[in-house]
Amino acid sequence: MKKLIGAAVIILLWNACKFNEQKTLPIAGNRDAVTETVDGKTVTDTVYQTIPAFKFVNQYGDSITNKTLDGNIYVADFFFTTCPSICPIMHRNMLTVYNAFKDVADVKIISHTIDPQHDSVAVLKKYADKLGIAGSKWWLLQGKKEDTYKLAASYLVSSPQVDAKEKYVHDGYFILIDKQKRIRGQYDGTVPEQVTKLIEDIKTLKAEPDQTTAK
């Protein structure tokens, strides 16, 4: 009997430990080891790849930079409004993400158009209205084509290609960026299961100490 109680206590303690275990997401991209001398001691630190500075205009005509997104976890994707192939399915799935975090202040969504010539601010605003999104949760960003294409590379997605039939070919990835602008996950935006995982991962990320302390 005593042994049994002992075993039960051990199992309970073990479970309690597991309960406190923090789940964290991996950090993607290139990393560098930087060795510095701090107070006479040699300290090696890991520097992770981050999303570089950018400047675009959203569907309201407001200027949006990397600074505007400071203090936010965000999901990014690339699309264009006249896209006949994967965009509708991507944004049907992104709507699920939008609705899941509608009332969460520090989670945002940005969609970069890869066809700025057609997708003017007015076109993007109309698209947003038709899609049924409002407020400042989900921004549709427009800017110089080269800037958008260059930025795509830093999100570790392939650069969009011009295609005769489909107009543009691009990845359907949703990329999760943390408050330190590091890439924390990539999800196929055309697969509902992957999008469910993204929603779970955003919750996990939000609970990480790094994310709760960053403003």
């Binding site: 006949p84 994967i86 509708p88 899609l131």
Partner: peptide
């Protein structure tokens, strides 16, 4: 058809 009109023919908001 499914990419745009959806698995259950639900379309997409007021877009499709």
């Amino acid at each position: 058809c499914m990419n745009c009109h959806g698995k259950n023919g639900e379309g997409l908001s007021a877009l499709i």
